[in-house]
Design a binder for these strands. Structure first.
Length: 280
RNA sequence: CUCGUAACAAGCUA
């Protein structure tokens, strides 16, 4: 059953659901009983493809087989609903799992925080975040990142910065995700100086910017018309052993077009193909 | 006390 679960999970993660389902049927046919993990993997697979109805069917099937859903089952469904902006339904599931004796964990909470932020209910997200402590759960770096991102997207950078300081006080270490979120937010707010300060700070802390980090900074620089600076940063990627991907190029090309440097844009465009990438 | 499943960051389009 574990071998099958791994296989099913592998195929689900690559979006090859059909084959995963075939393995599922095959295991059942051979008299091997799927367990919670098998079901969870399938449910997750369907959720990732936005096939919520199908996911619900699998859920019913597992209950029919007297397999009790566990924290992961509920969390997967909650996350999926949250991602689609259906926080209301997610909250119902959240309550239901507690009634059924499954205690939400850090992941469940983070999913709820994510969902609440997505629909702009920042206060409730913060409440959720605070209630983790009462539940005896650790407000870990991922939950911080999620809420920080929520504040940033909700144009509440100052609130995000408060959280950023708070996490330090708790002895937590910010990650590249944390910095990428904040750098992006400051760029969008036109505060590129502060963004660059964070950019330097993260490297002093031993964190390396990755493609996402470069992309938010490049986007910020391009949007305020600092094309030269953006190109310098872009060149510095090479020294960091990072190859630009299509997103990076599209940011730069967009920047060049905005600045009316169409020839430069074309050069960058040609570079995409030279690298064997496909423009989208 | 062996194994498998879930959460956070990036681009264009009045």
């Amino acid at each position: 059953a574990i071998v099958y679960s791994s296989l099913i999970n592998g195929f689900c993660s690559s979006g090859r659901l059909k084959e995963a389902v075939r393995f599922f049927d095959e295991m059942v046919g051979r008299g091997i009983s799927p367990c919670v993990v098998t079901y969870n993997s399938l449910i997750h697979g369907f959720c990732q493809l936005d096939l919520l109805k199908e996911a619900a069917r699998i859920f019913d099937k597992m209950v029919g087989q007297r397999i009790s859903p566990d924290v992961v089952t509920f969390t997967v469904l909650i996350y999926c609903l949250c991602k689609k902006g259906k926080v209301g339904e997610a909250s119902e599931l959240f309550e239901m799992m507690i009634r059924l004796g499954n205690q939400p964990n850090e992941v469940t909470y983070t999913s709820m925080i994510y969902g609440l932020c997505l629909v702009g209910r920042l206060d409730e997200a913060a409440e959720m975040f605070n209630s983790m402590v009462e539940r005896g759960l650790e407000q870990n770096i991922k939950s911080y990142n999620t809420l920080i991102n929520g504040y940033c997207k909700g144009r509440a950078i100052e609130g995000a910065m408060l959280l950023f300081r708070e996490l330090h006080e708790k002895g937590l270490k910010p990650t590249t995700f944390t910095y990428t979120t904040l750098i992006g937010a400051f760029c969008q707010a036109g505060r590129v100086k502060t963004a660059k300060k964070l950019w330097n700070e993260m490297q002093n802390c031993g964190l390396s910017p990755n493609l996402c980090t470069y992309s938010v900074l490049l986007d910020g620089l391009c949007k305020i018309g600092h094309i030269e600076e953006a190109m310098d940063v872009f060149k510095s990627m090479k020294t960091a052993d990072l190859e630009g991907n299509v997103e990076i190029f599209s940011i730069l090309i967009d920047g060049m077009c905005r600045a009316n440097k169409l020839e430069e844009a074309r050069k960058l465009f040609d570079e995409i193909s030279k690298k064997g990438m496909v423009p989208d």
